[in-house]
Design a protein around this nucleic acid. Structure first.
Lengths: 208, 208
DNA sequence: AATTCCAGAGAACAGTTGTTAACTGGATGA
DNA sequence: TCATCCAGTTAACAACTGTTCTCTGGAATT
């Protein structure tokens, strides 16, 4: 189904990606609402007007960045929640997964954390939609579990949102600890694991 | 202990407060990192240079806004956590309190949610410090409770952070639902209450 | 081979920004 | 009463912003 792009389309996509990459770097030290279009094109080395060939505005760029940052994460989420083993093993694996992802891709993670409540409405909405999709997917996975017996749909969705929010809290903790000592990062990992453990315990006794 | 301010100092404080109020309004639709000093002074009706008599920069203004938004909240947090009654009553009261606060002071709440992970380092740090203070205070209150018997200090602090984070999640949910229908806001309240309930259950069975 | 297309360049636009310096005039303190 | 102080003003600065229009050269299409 994949169609080989012409030289032209390929070059265009390359420039587009360069703009997005440059933006992500610039956004490590500022918010999207203060990111200038000229700033981005200057970093890439193209004329300011070239920007308009790819994005209507920086807000538009931001929405594209949201897709890039979260779009590819859905399969990862699914397998993480599904993963078998004891509750304790699953927690450890989830925390490791988050830590690894934050270490490997700090810029996109920072961008999402920053713009989730940021000053650009379309971007906030794009993030909210993606996170809602995550919650829905987590919910369908949770529903398969034996522990979900007797749970109402609303309760399952409530728990899913709690998990998704907790993942973001953990990710931003790791983000803050990125430049810290390994001991500090280990402390964060233990804290995150304990919080997840408490939520798991709450889940186990929910129907009591 | 209170000393009556001279005409001069009083006028200065008045202008300073006007700058902060105007900034808060402007920040409803953008992030601090894009807030211009001229923008603020224009909204107040003073010369741009007057800004420097009160703040070194907009980042400095932001730090002052953090103090204003969170500084006065400490007593409120204390009494909320301490409040007696059944677990269910305490949850209902906490959710109501948050909903009321968000409705009464949406701008400062939005500011904190936005800048907690925003693009201005000193402001992020100021918020982090205030939230850490909240967690410490919640911890000391929790420690007084009979349920805290056998809990380690680390576990108590872990739970406190979970509570504080959950309060922020709830506040930002109410913020999003501010312009929505009463039914929608009630839905948010029920969701928040259920999430707190799950955490409470986890807390109750933590030592099993 | 001739024509159309279009990503990117270039120049110019009116507005905006933070920061400096020197000032004014009313409150303050001797 | 008189000298000092200082919150706020005025003017000017170079640097920057988003957006428009026109142009170009190589890819794509016929």
């Amino acid at each position: 189904m994949s169609h080989t792009l012409g030289i032209r389309q390929a070059q265009k996509q390359k420039t587009r990606q360069a703009l997005m990459d440059a933006a992500l770097v610039l956004l490590e030290e500022q918010s999207l609402s203060s990111l200038g279009l000229r700033e981005v094109t200057r970093a890439v080395g193209v004329a300011p007007t070239a920007f308009y060939r790819h994005f209507r505005s920086t807000a538009d760029l931001g929405v594209a960045l949201v897709e890039e940052a979260l779009g590819s994460l859905h399969p990862m989420i699914r397998t993480t929640v599904t993963a078998d083993g004891t509750s304790e093993e699953r927690i450890a694996r989830a925390v490791e997964l988050i830590a690894g992802h934050v270490t490997a891709y700090p810029a996109p993670v920072r961008f999402i954390a920053r713009e989730r409540h940021g000053g650009v409405q379309p971007v906030r909405e794009a993030i909210r939609d993606q996170l809602a999709r995550f919650a829905e997917e987590v919910k369908t996975e949770l529903a398969k579990d034996a522990e979900a017996e007797g749970w109402s749909d609303d309760d399952l969705l409530m728990l899913s949102h709690l998990y998704v929010d907790q993942m973001l809290v953990t990710a931003s903790l790791f983000l803050e600890a990125l430049e810290s000592s390994p001991q500090e990062r280990e402390r964060v990992a233990l804290l995150a694991a304990r919080q997840m453990r408490l939520i798991s315990i709450g889940r186990r006794h929910w129907l009591d």
